[in-house]
Structures are given as structure tokens and as C-alpha cells.
Computed example of a mutant assay.
Amino acid sequence: METFFETLAQHRGGYILRADLLDRGVSDRQIKDAIHQGLIVRLRAGTYAPRGHRDLSPEERHRLLAFAVQDKLPSGIVLSHHSAAVVHTGASFGVDLSTVHVTRRGHRTARTEANVVHHGGLLPDEDIVEVDGHLLVAPARAALETAAVAGVEAGLVQTSLVLGGGVSEEELHDRLDRMARWPGVSKVRLAVVWASPQCESVGEARSLYMFRMGGLPVPRMQVEYFDADGTSIGRVDFAWEDFWHLGEFDGLSKYGRLNPYTGANLGQLVVDEKRREDRLRELGLGMSRWTWADLAHPAATCRRIEAAMRQSRRLYGQAVRTVIA
């Protein structure tokens, strides 16, 4: 039975409609039993996915939900706002992933029904792209729309990631100019100004936001350090060179599901990180680390980092080090 559901889902790109099951002789009672047994997962009314859906990231689940919603709407309706942004970047912060956003071209009114937000407005052809057979607003527009409805931090995450993905600053600013009369444009403008293409993760982008709001100097990013022989010691997320201090955000990419080691060798990763940090300190540099939990308390985290920065400047102010961006 499990193989049956998986095969059926493949035909629609990962999900199953109630009509698909009824057409194949599966009753509503059997559908309920399959849900209870964990063979399928309910995405929304009349839409399901195989049990493997549970292993997807929240963003992957939202992508599937968004495509399923769009496929049941009239043709020409475009995924937009964070629903498009999640498809483009594979990441999110500060948005409701249970809600899908779409834009109806030419409509001027907006409405929300069954966890689907229908936006209206002009949507020129150049603002629309196709991904896996689905129409979405372009990456830059999706990032800016996310900032408009979800705020600066959520927008900073998306604008940084699309910049890192190849969108130019000129395109972002050009689109921002066209949004001059949009509600919430001040939040969008701040997200664009603060964004950096050097952010490689949600955690790094949120760290930038934390520094800005906490009054810390804006550091250089992705800075690589070398020893006296020219051998690379390692690259760090953030470097406050005037303070002889480094910063590292420790998220899932190092210690979670993206860990390059097997589960049995997680300790090896910790040992390697400690060795790298020790070699950087030997250059006369201090280091601060923070995690997702620390980002939830930005004021306290900024105070801790600032105190460490000042200590590093006192201790290492005359140190000589070799660095290359």
C-alpha cells in the first residue's frame, strides 16, 4: 500500500488528491485509515502526501503545499511572497509556512481563504518565472514582497540569499524603486540596504540583523586566514578586524543534518573545529560563537560579543596575522 501511495504521488510532483484515490477505488474510510496508520499525511483538505513527507524540511513541505494549492487554482495564478521565496532559496525565517501566498494578475483586491492569501495587483511578464512547471514571481520580487509583509529580518534573510544566488544589487534597487508606493516599503528598503550576498545561511543573515539592531560594527564576512607559510587555517563567518576578533554562527550546517561526518563521527567534527579555533587564536585573534538559541536573545548576545571584542583589542591589538578575503 505504501508503494501505491508513493507511485500515485509521483504523477503529481509529490502529492495526492482525494479525487486520485477515489478514482482508484480507495474510499474515504480507507483514506482516514491510511492517515491514522501514518501511510499518508494530510497537507490540506483533499490533498495528501506519502509518509516520506515527514522527513522533508519545513521549506520542502511548504514548496509541496504551495504547488498543490496552485495546481487546484485557475491557470495564470502565480505563487508569490514567501511561497515563491521559499521555492527560490530553499530557506525561510519569520513567515507562516502553513499559509500559501498567490497573486492574481490584474485583480486589485486581496482576500484570504483556507490558508491561502490571494493578492491582487499588476504583475508584468518580466516579474514571472517558471520553476518545475509552476509560475512564480522572480526571486528578487519574492524577496522584496516577503520583507513587505513579514518585516525587516525576514526580508533581510531572503534578499541576502537571492543576492548570493546571483541576483544583482542593481536589480534589487530597481525593483525597490518601483515599490515606492507599496505599504511597508520602509521595511523593504532597510532589508535591501542591510542585505549581503556573502551570507551563506539563514543564521548568518539573522546575525547581520542582530549586529545592526544591537549597534555592533558590521564585520567583514567569509574571511580566510593563513599561517606564516601560506597554509590556510580556515575561513570564518565574521571578522571585526579593528578589534582583532572573529565570529562564528554555529548552526545545522556544522552540527545538524548537514554535518559532513556520519553520526558516529560527530565528535570528530567538534575536535576539528576546536583545533581550527586554537590555530586562529594563535594568530592573536579572539573568537565568539553563537547559536540559534542565542539569536533568540539578541540584546544579551550582542553585549557578550561586544565585551569579547573589546577584550580581544586589549589583548591582541599589536598582533600580526595573515588574512585574505
Rank of each mutant, 00 (worst) to 15 (best):
P74E: 08
D242Y: 02
Q158R: 07
V100H: 04
A19Y: 02
D23L: 10
V41Y: 07
R206D: 00
S207W: 09
L283F: 01
I35T: 13
R178P: 05
L246D: 11
C199Y: 06
W244R: 15
T291M: 07
R220S: 14
F226C: 05
P74I: 02
A148W: 02
R175D: 12
T146Y: 09
E171W: 02
D20C: 04
S98H: 06
A34W: 13
A9V: 11
G38D: 09
G263T: 12
A148P: 05
E241D: 13
M210H: 07
Y255Q: 01
G120W: 08
T322D: 06
V41Q: 08
G214Q: 00
R220E: 14
R181V: 01
M221T: 03
V320Y: 00
A68G: 12
V87R: 05
R289Q: 12
R63W: 09
G203R: 00
A84S: 15
P219M: 06
D127R: 14
R141E: 06
W182Y: 08
A325M: 09
H245W: 10
G256E: 05
G121N: 06
V116L: 07
A319C: 04
V78S: 02
R105D: 05
I305F: 03
G166F: 13
S75R: 13
A325E: 11
P50R: 07
A299T: 14
H245M: 12
G46P: 09
T231V: 13
A142F: 03
A85F: 03
R54A: 15
G317M: 00
A205M: 02
E169V: 15
A9S: 14
I305W: 04
L216N: 07
G151L: 11
V137F: 04
V162S: 00
E273T: 15
G317K: 00
D174M: 10
Q311R: 15
R61N: 03
A148K: 14
G52A: 11
G151R: 09
V102L: 01
T3I: 10
K187C: 08
D20T: 06
L285E: 10
V162H: 01
A66M: 07
V218W: 08
W240N: 02
M210L: 15
V188P: 11
A195H: 06
W240H: 02
R235M: 11
A308I: 01
A142I: 00
R18Q: 03
A150M: 02
M287Y: 04
D229P: 03
V26M: 10
D28Y: 09
S207C: 09
H101T: 08
S232Y: 00
G286D: 09
D127I: 05
S27W: 02
A143W: 13
Y15G: 06
D229T: 15
N259E: 10
Q30C: 08
R206Q: 01
Q222W: 07
